[in-house]
């Protein structure tokens, strides 16, 4: 039997390692934002208003270079387009929730919260009743770690030495999440196809290669599923 409380705590617990893994990026964002000439209060507000790591990192680079606002906004849309795929995949699970829940969960829908939450929704072993509390727990955990690491980066200007390679924890977290699913052949095919296209398109601007890779992986996965 799950309760809202047990699901909330499970979401927090599951998200914690991955949320700690984004803290180096938050630190780097804080340092870069100040370097781009953004005042500390505005830089912190941006983490709360935008709450999207890669869009913020690219955004401060563009602001620092004096880019016109229209280009900044267009880039933000392109970089974050993948979130539309996430919300499409979560929508069937949250469709019966009151609208205020969906307004709140949309704000918390990041790569890292999505990664943990969708796996929990797809796990048919556990009761589906309170899974939006798990989503909330994962989202709040990531939000808290992102805001606090941003603050540390901004106000202390602290910089973890690059030699620690803490950014690698992000890749390791994702490896830990996807590897068990690769026992299914369509998923294995989807992973290899998406990975190879991502490598080939890595030089494309604005993370467009990531979109191309994800779409290729999805199509290949479905193709293998149909053939099997």
């Amino acid at each position: 039997m799950t309760t809202p409380r047990s699901e909330l705590l499970a979401g927090i617990k599951a998200e914690l390692p991955i949320a700690l893994g984004v803290m180096p990026s938050g630190l780097i964002y804080g340092v870069l934002a100040l370097a781009a000439g953004i005042p500390p209060a505005v830089a912190q507000a941006m983490s709360a208003i935008v709450f999207a790591g890669s869009a913020q990192l690219i955004g401060v680079q563009l602001i620092g270079a004096g880019t016109v606002t229209a280009v900044l906004w267009f880039t933000t849309a392109i970089v974050n387009l993948r979130h539309m795929l996430y919300s499409a995949s979560l929508a069937p699970h949250v469709r019966t929730l009151p609208a205020r829940w969906r307004w709140l969960l949309a704000y918390l829908l990041t790569d890292e919260a999505y990664a943990m939450t969708i796996l929990h929704y797809q796990d048919t072993q556990t009761a589906a009743t309170h899974k939006h509390w798990y989503f909330l727990g994962a989202g709040i955990t990531l939000w808290t770690c992102w805001q606090s690491s941003t603050a540390v980066g901004i106000f202390l200007g602290a910089q973890v030495p690059a030699s620690w390679s803490l950014d690698f924890t992000l890749a390791l977290t994702f490896l830990g999440l996807i590897t068990p699913s690769l026992a299914k052949r369509p998923h294995l095919a989807a992973a290899i196809a998406a990975g190879l296209v991502a490598v080939l398109t890595n030089a494309w601007p604005y993370k467009l290669g990531l979109m191309a890779a994800a779409l290729t992986g999805i199509l290949i996965g479905m193709w293998v599923e149909v053939r099997a």
Binding site: R82, L85, Y86, A88, S89, D111, Y114, A115, I118, L119, L170, A171, F174, L175, L177, I178, S181, L182, P186, H187, A190, A191, I192, A193, A194, G195, L196, V197, A198, V199, G209, L210, A213, A214, L215, T216, G217, I218, G221, M222
Partner: peptide
Amino acid sequence: YVPTAVLSAIVF
């Protein structure tokens, strides 16, 4: 396939 494809595209 969205999680597998997107996360692989980030990791590779």
